[in-house]
Computed example of a mutant assay.
Amino acid sequence: MTIAPDTARSEPPQYRAMREALSSLDDTVPGKFEITKEGIVHDMMSPGRPHELTAVLVSRRMEKVMPDDLVAHTGTPDVENAPEGVMRHPDVIVLALADMEGDGPFDPRSLLAAVEVVSRSNPDNDWIGKVRDYPLLGIPVYAVFDPRTATGAVMSDIHPTPEGPRYATRKDFVYGEDVTIADWTISTDGLPRYAEPGE
């Protein structure tokens, strides 16, 4: 189901300024940039092999159990809600293949789930910032895989709170267990871990 962008609300001027600043930095500053309600998040380290391998394995395992008209996509473009002033880049997004068509960022309302692999250099971005932002964007299911600890969690059931929309349900898992993300259950066997410092 394709969802038209929300044109009734314009993007905040502060958000527009941050987007323009990031555009001018493209390909000149290493790392990944995202925009949150709190400002710009810069993960200075490019993701390493365990991070990228986890994203690929989760994507492949999900696609094996999902219908052919859905995709577990890794890569670009970003997921953006300009009126809310948020631009994120999930490691894996689950959406209809038809919603891959077109130009520009993905509308977060078209996502069925988002998956993040925790960054070694900035874990709070995945465990705190995105836990706050993804329900605000209306992403119904958010799964976190943490190669530092071989654990993770799946959050769902968005509900209103005084601080804004939040996930009401959290199911923790450890690597080796099966995990259910939205309607699909996959194995977490064999997912890589980050090496301990000095290894």
Rank of each mutant, 00 (worst) to 15 (best):
F145K: 02
A153L: 10
P160V: 09
P135G: 09
L112K: 03
I139K: 00
P160W: 05
A150N: 06
N122T: 11
G129I: 00
A114H: 01
E163D: 15
A150H: 04
G138T: 01
P147M: 06
A143D: 06
N122I: 03
D133Y: 00
E116D: 13
K130M: 06
R166P: 00
V118M: 08
F145T: 11
L111E: 01
N122E: 05
Y167I: 05
L111H: 03
E163Q: 15
A168K: 13
I158V: 15
A168E: 13
P162W: 00
T149G: 12
A113P: 01
A153K: 14
T149D: 12
V144W: 05
V141E: 04
L112Q: 12
L136K: 13
Y142N: 05
D133T: 00
V154A: 03
P165A: 10
V144G: 05
T149A: 10
H159L: 11
D126K: 09
Y167A: 10
D146F: 08
Y167S: 14
A113G: 05
N125I: 08
A150V: 14
H159K: 12
V117M: 02
P123D: 07
A150F: 02
P165D: 11
Y167C: 13
P123H: 07
A114N: 02
P147D: 03
D157C: 12
D133E: 15
S121E: 14
A168H: 12
V118S: 09
Y142C: 10
T151V: 03
S121V: 02
H159Q: 09
Y134N: 09
P162G: 04
S121H: 07
Y167F: 11
P147I: 10
M155W: 04
V131Y: 04
R148G: 11
V131F: 03
L112C: 08
G138R: 09
N122P: 11
S156T: 15
S119M: 07
G138H: 09
P140A: 02
A113H: 04
R132K: 10
D126P: 04
F145S: 05
V154N: 03
R120A: 14
R166Q: 15
D133C: 09
N122W: 02
R166I: 06
K130V: 08
P162E: 03
I128G: 06
N122D: 11
E163C: 09
S119N: 11
G164E: 06
L137R: 04
A143W: 03
D126E: 14
G164M: 08
S119P: 10
V117N: 02
V131C: 13
V131W: 06
G129T: 09
P135V: 12
A143P: 02
E163R: 15
V144L: 14
L112V: 13
D133Q: 08
M155E: 07
Y134G: 03
G129S: 13
L111F: 04
P135E: 04
D146Y: 08
K130Y: 01
A113F: 04
V154W: 02
T161V: 13
T161A: 07
P162F: 00
R120Y: 06
D157S: 14
D126V: 14
V154H: 01
I128K: 14
E163G: 12
N125S: 14
R148Q: 11
E116Q: 11
L137C: 08
F145H: 03
V154D: 01
I158R: 00
A153E: 14
Y142W: 11
V115W: 00
A168W: 06
Y142A: 09
